[in-house]
Simulated assay, not measured.
Amino acid sequence: MSNPNLVIDSKQFRNALGAFATGVTIVTTRDGEGTDVGLTASSFNSVSLEPPMILWSLAKTSGSLSAFMTGDYFAVHVLAAEQQSLSDRFSKRGIDKFAGLELERGPGQVPLLGDCAARFKCKTSFRYEGGDHIIFVGEVIEFDHSAHPPLAFHGGKYAKVHPRALENPVDVEDVNSSFNKDYLGFLLGVASMQLYQPVRKDWQQLGLTECGYFVLSVLAAGKHKTQGQIEELLKPSGHRLGDEELGKLLQAELVTVQGDGPARQFDLTSRGHEYAVKLFVQAKSSEQKAIAGLDWDDLALLKNLLKKVIRNTRN
């Protein structure tokens, strides 16, 4: 719940957000009159692998907003390190941003730029209000990528990515601590609960049970799952997709069932996809807060170590 008495300095807030390094993208579309529209954006993230979905956001005050609100298609270009001038061009107003550029055309005749690190051609699936921005979620129809290193942005400045091998973690000083403070299971449990709590509030508000939330997450990650496949993926959570839980999801029109018997297949409905995306957005927001202060190497090391722990503790 927001605190109406909390006063945040917008300039300092922007500076704080700048501590998070991002890639740089140009998002393009075509308005109702057939005019090419494009802008520079760093608010880009993945949503789902099956179906392939991505999201980005645009300020409500942007002059390009109406084109993206009415357009059915858009393209996201992840810029290469050598394309800083292109980023500068598309961040300006009142100029013909496409003048002199060699363009390709994507779905809906959306303009496509060349020589990018990656390109995602998308059909708009959902639009959500997010404070002073609109969040656009698109299903990826086509994509391509190259070996070009990406352009990065950090602290209000452009940067280049210099990949490097992870160094061996520094030995932690052996200190006397309580069982709670030093036990890996306790630390992982606390971190998990703190990450999970905001998402829990959201799925409860949507009328879901914990098992229902996990089922949506499983189906959002892959189509055409049988009941046996879903239950296998649910095992770590301790849940089982019984008839009662399945009935709730069907009654809420969140999932569909095709076929009979053990081979019947489950998929998300459009409403189920919308619920899953909303919960994913909240989960990513919770994650960003949790990793504040970690640099790229710290985060990569943390994820790799957690994957090892998961593999070592599988039954």
Rank of each mutant, 00 (worst) to 15 (best):
25 T>A: 14
245 E>Q: 09
163 P>K: 10
31 D>W: 08
155 G>D: 04
63 G>A: 06
222 G>M: 06
119 R>I: 14
32 G>P: 06
190 V>F: 08
176 N>S: 10
143 F>I: 06
57 S>H: 03
281 V>D: 08
98 F>S: 00
306 L>F: 11
241 L>R: 07
99 A>Q: 14
32 G>C: 04
58 L>S: 04
123 K>T: 12
232 E>N: 11
135 I>L: 15
103 L>M: 05
95 I>V: 10
314 R>M: 11
111 P>M: 00
109 Q>L: 14
202 D>Y: 06
108 G>D: 10
125 S>G: 03
158 Y>A: 00
215 V>S: 04
260 D>W: 05
148 H>P: 00
251 Q>G: 08
278 K>P: 02
230 I>P: 06
103 L>H: 06
233 L>I: 14
114 G>F: 00
279 L>F: 06
271 R>V: 01
2 S>C: 01
9 D>E: 11
180 N>W: 12
203 W>Q: 09
211 C>E: 12
23 G>T: 09
159 A>G: 14
185 G>C: 11
232 E>V: 08
296 W>G: 15
214 F>A: 12
144 D>A: 13
9 D>A: 13
200 R>A: 09
278 K>C: 07
268 L>H: 00
132 D>K: 05
287 E>D: 06
56 W>I: 08
153 F>G: 00
156 G>T: 04
206 L>E: 14
172 V>C: 10
267 D>F: 06
136 F>W: 02
227 Q>G: 11
280 F>V: 12
142 E>Y: 11
301 L>D: 06
39 L>D: 08
45 N>H: 10
149 P>V: 04
220 A>N: 13
239 H>M: 12
31 D>E: 06
231 E>W: 04
218 V>Y: 09
61 T>K: 14
272 G>W: 02
237 S>V: 04
118 A>V: 01
104 E>H: 09
281 V>P: 00
176 N>M: 13
31 D>T: 03
191 A>C: 09
193 M>S: 12
114 G>T: 05
212 G>D: 00
45 N>C: 13
265 Q>F: 05
89 R>M: 11
149 P>Y: 13
111 P>W: 01
12 Q>I: 04
283 A>S: 15
239 H>L: 07
278 K>G: 05
125 S>D: 13
263 A>G: 06
255 V>S: 03
130 G>Y: 09
266 F>C: 01
272 G>E: 01
141 I>Q: 13
217 S>W: 07
52 P>C: 09
285 S>N: 11
269 T>M: 01
42 S>Q: 05
240 R>Y: 13
25 T>P: 10
145 H>C: 12
90 F>N: 01
285 S>W: 08
230 I>R: 10
241 L>N: 03
10 S>C: 07
216 L>P: 08
259 G>H: 07
242 G>M: 03
33 E>F: 09
232 E>C: 05
134 I>T: 15
178 S>A: 11
176 N>D: 13
153 F>K: 00
